[in-house]
């Protein structure tokens, strides 16, 4: 590592080469972040010049029905989606991290949803969840339970979480598989000699060794959770551009691009970003604590 650290005058060159990227980052990413923050303090309808609105856009958020509904939906969705995705993709990765015949086929199967178009898989799930002709209700009624409105108001959250988790397991699995395969096999052999149980192996070898992957995956999954859109749109969007289970991204899009309320949309986007940022900070803290335990 230390041999690769630039010394003295080399440092200057490093900065020079990084400059284009850094500028792009500064203008692109940070520029748009600051622009969004700036816009959130204005009333802007896209067509006429923005007008200063102070904190009105933020102050109005708690009373906005579309926003509050979307806010709680997003929280509930993320609260279920993040732990389920991380845990299940870890479980699948551990299950598939072995050398048996046809394992590659299994891995492909789990990864398949990640490479399919959300619209196509959304249609598939629409069929699974369909109230009368649906696969799921056929199964449910076969065991004598009355059919469920899977995408109706009561179940939509859970049904949507299932689809999104299903779609995300493959990606998480790849990260965890890579992490698992990077663990030297000697660690497991030591525990075998030491007489550790499977649970102890997981607890004391696998999980600590996967800590970086777990952290990375949790942050990524959280960001994805707060920005989830595709499946939700395909499965729950309604005739007037709303959704049975509108999330913040939905609300931001609708406010800004359909209702001429860019300032309001910007404020919602800032809240969304702040939530992601805050959670990422919490994860960083946890990782530091965990990493040094």
């Amino acid at each position: 590592m230390s041999a690769l650290r630039p010394m003295g005058s080399e440092r200057w060159w490093v900065w020079l080469f990084l400059l284009p990227t850094l500028l792009g980052l500064a203008l692109g990413t940070f520029g748009s972040i600051f622009a969004t923050i700036g816009l959130s303090f204005t009333n802007w309808d896209l067509l006429t010049p923005p007008q200063w609105a102070g904190v009105d856009n933020y102050a109005d958020l708690p009373a906005g029905r579309m926003f509050t509904k979307a806010f709680w939906n997003t929280l509930a969705f993320s609260g279920l989606y993040v732990p389920l995705t991380v845990v299940l993709s870890l479980v699948v990765a551990i299950g598939l991290n072995r050398r048996i015949k046809g394992i590659g086929w299994f891995r492909v199967m789990y990864f398949l949803p990640a490479v399919c178009s959300p619209t196509a898989t959304g249609l598939l799930w629409n069929w699974i969840y369909a109230p009368d002709n649906g696969v799921l209700n056929a199964a449910v009624t076969a065991v004598g339970v009355s059919p469920v409105s899977w995408l109706g108001p009561r179940m939509a959250l859970y049904s949507i979480v299932v689809v999104n988790v299903w779609g995300a397991i493959g990606g998480g699995m790849i990260i965890f598989l890579a992490g698992l395969q990077a663990i030297p096999k000697e660690y497991f052999e030591v525990t075998r000699l030491d007489g550790a149980t499977a649970w102890q192996r997981l607890r004391f070898v696998t999980l600590p060794a996967l800590a970086p992957s777990l952290f990375f995956q949790t942050v990524l999954t959280t960001i994805n959770a707060f920005q989830a859109f595709d499946y939700i749109y395909v499965l729950t969007s309604s005739g007037n551009g709303n959704s049975t289970m509108p999330t913040l991204v939905f609300s931001i899009y609708r406010s800004g691009f359909r209702f001429f309320r860019m300032g309001d949309a910007a404020a919602q986007a800032v809240v969304l970003t702040a939530m992601i940022f805050a959670l990422t900070l919490v994860y960083f803290r946890l990782q530091k604590k965990w990493g040094e335990a």
Binding site: R65, S238, G239, N240, N242, R254, F259, F260, R261
Partner: peptide
Amino acid sequence: KGYEEWSGAVGDALHMAWT
């Protein structure tokens, strides 16, 4: 002015009656 948003707001609420 605001027809689309008004229609969205009213439609969202009515939708809860239809479900």
